[in-house]
Design a protein around this nucleic acid. Structure first.
Length: 888
RNA sequence: GGGCGUAUAGCUCAGCGGUAGAGCACUCGGCUUACAACCGAGCGGUCGCAGGUUCGAUCCCUGCUGCGCCCACCA
């Protein structure tokens, strides 16, 4: 066995007989780690650094080809910037914070967190989770969270290593780690101290399954079946208003009849003449017999339902608006558990009403609806049958039941949703970013313009960053929320449920005159919105932070512009008064081949590790990098096979070029004197074309268009292999003299050296393998190719003539191939005589390349005839004579 | 309801104010000493529809249609 070469050793002249992609991932990822090829040099200044605000993957989610897709894009950019001479700050983060982890731990271990239980240091769980979830303490629970996320993080790291991400693994962070918790709590406290964070008791969108508040950014609309119910309210007295129904009733239509006991008003549009006579009067609700005012509000829609709506506390956000703006009563009936609360609301005082209510108390919303419909039918207040409809209903994105609105005390961060001036500032911040692709900015603008309230950041969950606040308790042990006890920044991270505020004794917890900790944790985005600060060492390593912040690039997917991008920008706006990055690179999604979003449930998810093992990382990276920025892309193994073919071709072509001879192998091709060996016009023409491809790829990369950079490199490479290499092959063997051979070999080597570097960001393994055969160091620390090193001005001055030459030669060899193909001859068939027709203008070109063309086409004798080609195309005359007609 | 994107070969996608491109698939030919997991040649398109601007439109403008996505107060 031949020892694999080491990148720091002398060029090894090691050329495998049969180059292969197998094993390159393990070999080179190991070498890179060992030699710290991607380690960040923190002595560099901000100007010298290119910093990336890595998206920390949710480790409790499944590994998905979508991950491979978008992280490859970022890695290609990182590698390009590194080769351009930037010191790339490219850490990895793990998002192990929040509900995703909680849920995974519950299912994986079969446990459930009960914060009232004491910690059990000797907890032993059954090997297989049982049917019944085991209740454990909060501390035990979070320990299991830590334990499981460690496993998940390992799986991700293995994947990333195999994919070849050029991450500095010594700088990894986790969003629930101590550093992240400290940053998150510090930023929150500063928001609080500046008045950007506040606490309020207000109607809140509430998930009854997870029993937590959720934020606007976590909502999604889903089509949900429901039904219109036409319900009669009773007008007071013997009203003689002609517009009332003849039976003195007012009909409303609702999809939420179960909220009838929560009704606080009927609302119609001020200009709706059907109801104007009722404004200012009251009606009585059916079943519950509560006196209900009829009021006017512009938000009521004349042509929706009956045109008059039942306003409940709270059925939807319009109800909240009406309740606020019209100063209506409050009759909450939905409890935290999603069931009808036991006590009837105020105002529900009649005996009949209380009896009706008693039949609902404790029921789920679903059952309560059936019961109310039953009662209304019996009382004759339901007109007709419910009419089924499907309408959009708000869900928590991770939830399975429609959201309710429950009044709770929560923490908020101002986000412009209630403040036009702040909103305008944030919109302006959006313009300070370079968006790639630029139209993605519209999504940001839409989101900011559509915000309808401040950002609710508290969550009634267990695993996450605690809200760092205590509250003094009064003589009745009730918390004084208006005067929280704020911890010192030096004490962060802290947990108010186990830490004791200064001046108190742990035994004062929960006692009159004592203190209580805030029981809630923060929304996962409240921490993730600080990834530039976490990764950069804000507050703990200000020296590092100054060298990396604001960052250059935020890569992310488009669906989290409203969450991650927006919230990060908001926090940076508050804390640093600037945008957190210069560029936002937005990736698309992976769709399955049917153009649907890939989903686990459909069984079409491919495990990325298996893909990498089967096709090779370079192949999969090629597929990812072929997708235009921001574009949703079909999962396509065909494209990966194309990438694999490219990588194999690169190995083989390199082997050929490097195998042409050791004697004149230049030790340092960066030495421009090598260029003087390139004497043949055809060789210079090729280098000139390559120089243009290099320029095009560079411009594309600088504009974050990695796919175009790859396309240009690839386009040139196939042309190089199929035409140039074939044309100069025999000359390179030395059949036309040493100088001509040296010209070809040097050009081939210069071209190979440049092309390996063009491909390095995309095919890091194959390019590194080839680089190691003949160059020092890692290709990934070499410099990005330039037009200058390929001849620059020298080539450019002759460009007109020489690119014409290359075109002529390519056309000629193509015509010869076609002639042979039409004659059903092997390409190696020797042709005794060929006639090449040409115009006067092109004749010099033809004659200049005739030697290479004749050799490549295996033409023994050629004749050039100076006249336009006869009609038709190439005419194969036979094995011993070939007429090649050209339109030149 | 508002917005963004998109529509090009059987499939996946580039492109561009001036004679329509690539890969895959398909057909034919070739084991040509870098590569048969390869090479060569070929077949294949009213550039979604309708108008407009222009000497000229696949490209620019307007409208329409299909698809995808984002957003929107769910009575």
């Amino acid at each position: 066995m031949t020892q694999p070469p080491q990148p720091t050793s002398e060029p090894s002249r090691y050329l495998p007989d049969k180059p292969s992609l197998e094993g390159l991932e393990a070999k080179w990822s190991g070498v890179w780690a060992e030699q710290g090829v991607y380690s960040f040099d923190r002595t560099k200044t901000r100007e010298q650094v290119y910093s990336i605000d890595t998206p920390p993957p949710t480790v409790s989610g499944s590994l998905h080809v979508g991950h491979v897709f978008s992280y490859t894009h970022t890695d290609a950019i990182a590698r390009f910037q590194r080769m351009r001479g930037k010191e790339v700050f490219y850490p990895m983060g793990w998002d192990d914070n929040g509900l995703a982890t909680e849920r995974r731990v519950q299912n994986y271990y079969g446990v459930r967190c009960d914060p009232s239980l004491p910690y059990d240091p000797d907890l032993v769980l059954p090997e297989q989770p049982g049917k019944q979830q085991i209740s454990i303490s909060r501390r035990n629970f979070t320990q299991l969270c830590d334990q499981l996320t460690k496993l998940d993080e390992q799986a991700f790291e293995e994947l990333w290593l195999r994919l070849g991400l050029s991450v500095d693994w010594s700088m990894t962070y986790a969003t629930v780690g101590a550093r992240s918790r400290a940053v998150s709590q510090r930023a929150f406290l500063r928001n609080y101290q500046r008045g950007h964070a506040y606490m309020a008791e207000a109607p809140t969108l509430w998930d009854v399954t997870f029993r937590t508040a959720v934020a606007q950014a976590e909502l999604e609309d889903r089509d949900h079946p429901g039904a219109w119910h036409r319900i009669a309210f009773h007008c007071a007295g013997d009203s003689a208003h002609s517009n009332s129904a003849p039976d003195n009733r007012v009909y409303i239509e609702t999809t939420r009849p179960e909220l009838l006991p929560a009704c606080v008003a009927l609302v119609a549009h001020p200009s709706d003449e059907r109801y104007t006579h009722l404004f200012g009067t009251t009606v009585r609700s059916p079943l519950f017999d509560v006196e209900i005012p009829v009021v006017a509000h512009r938000a009521a829609e004349i042509d929706r339902g009956a045109g008059i709506a039942m306003c409940c506390t709270f059925g939807d956000l319009t109800d909240v608006q009406w309740w606020r703006e019209l100063d209506l009563s409050t009759r909450a009936v939905v409890g935290w558990d999603g069931r009808v609360v036991a006590e009837p609301p105020t105002g529900l005082s009649s005996t009949a009403g209380r009896e009706a209510y008693a039949q609902l108390a404790g029921l789920t919303m679903h059952s309560a609806r059936q019961k109310v419909v039953e009662l209304l039918s019996a009382s004759g207040d339901l007109e007709g049958e419910p009419r089924p409809i499907t309408r959009p209903v708000k869900f928590y994105e991770k939830g399975e039941k429609p959201l309710e609105i429950v009044t709770t005390r929560q923490w908020y961060i101002r986000n412009g949703g209630r403040d036009d001036e702040l909103r305008a500032q944030l919109l302006k911040r959006g313009t300070e970013l370079s968006w790639h692709p630029d139209y993605m900015k519209v999504r940001y603008d839409n989101w900011v313009e559509g915000l309808n309230g401040d950002w609710l950041i508290s969550r009634q969950r267990f695993f996450g960053v605690p809200i760092p606040m205590w509250y003094p308790l009064n003589a009745d042990a009730e918390p004084d929320y208006a005067n929280p006890i704020v911890p010192h920044e030096a004490l962060l991270p802290m947990d108010p449920s186990s830490d004791t505020p200064p001046g108190y004794d742990p035994t004062d917890r929960g006692k009159p005159g004592g203190f209580a900790g805030d029981p809630d944790i923060m929304d996962t985005w409240a921490t993730s919105s600080l990834t530039p600060q976490i990764a950069g060492g804000w507050g703990s390593d200000e020296d590092l932070f100054a060298r990396v912040f604001p960052m250059d690039l935020r890569p992310q997917a488009h669906e989290i512009i409203r969450t991650w991008l927006f919230s990060t920008l908001l926090r940076s706006h508050y804390e640093h008064d600037q945008v957190p990055w210069q560029h936002a690179g937005i990736s698309g999604w992976i769709l399955d081949p049917d153009r649907k979003k890939m989903s686990k449930s459909k069984g079409n998810v491919v495990t990325p590790m298996a893909l990498l093992e089967e096709l090779g990382s370079d192949a999969v990276r090629y597929w990812a990098a072929s997708a235009r920025p921001g574009t949703d892309t079909a999962f396509d193994t065909g494209q990966m096979k194309v990438g694999r073919r490219l990588a194999v071709k690169l190995l083989n072509a390199s082997k050929f070029v490097l195998g042409l001879g050791e004697a004149d192998a230049p030790a340092n091709l960066a030495d421009v004197t090598e260029l003087s060996k390139v004497t043949e016009p055809l060789d210079n023409a090729m280098l000139g074309d390559l120089a243009r491809a290099v320029d095009a790829a560079t411009i594309a990369f600088e504009a974050y268009d990695y796919s175009r950079a790859l396309e240009r490199a690839e386009q040139f490479f196939w042309f190089f292999c199929d035409n140039y290499v074939e044309l100069v092959k025999t000359r390179a063997y030395g059949e036309h003299g040493d100088a001509a051979a040296a010209s070809a070999r040097t050009a081939l080597r210069l071209a190979l050296r440049a092309q390996l570097r063009l491909f390095a960001p995309f095919l890091p393994f194959a390019t590194e393998e080839v680089w190691s055969w003949w160059q020092r160091g890692s290709v990934h620390r070499s410099s990005w190719p330039t037009a200058d090193e390929l001849g620059g001005q020298r080539v450019t001055s002759q460009v007109a003539l020489e690119s014409g030459l290359l075109g002529t030669a390519t056309t000629l060899i193509g015509a010869i191939r076609k002639a042979k193909s039409d004659a059903k001859l092997s390409m190696r068939t020797e042709v005794d005589r060929a006639t090449i027709y040409a115009t006067v203008d092109s004749l010099p070109h033809v004659q200049a390349v005739l030697g290479d063309v004749a050799a490549a086409g295996r033409l023994r004798h050629t004749e050039t005839v100076c006249r336009p080609a006869p009609d038709g195309h190439s005419v194969p005359v036979g094995r011993d004579e070939l007429s090649v007609e050209l339109s030149l």
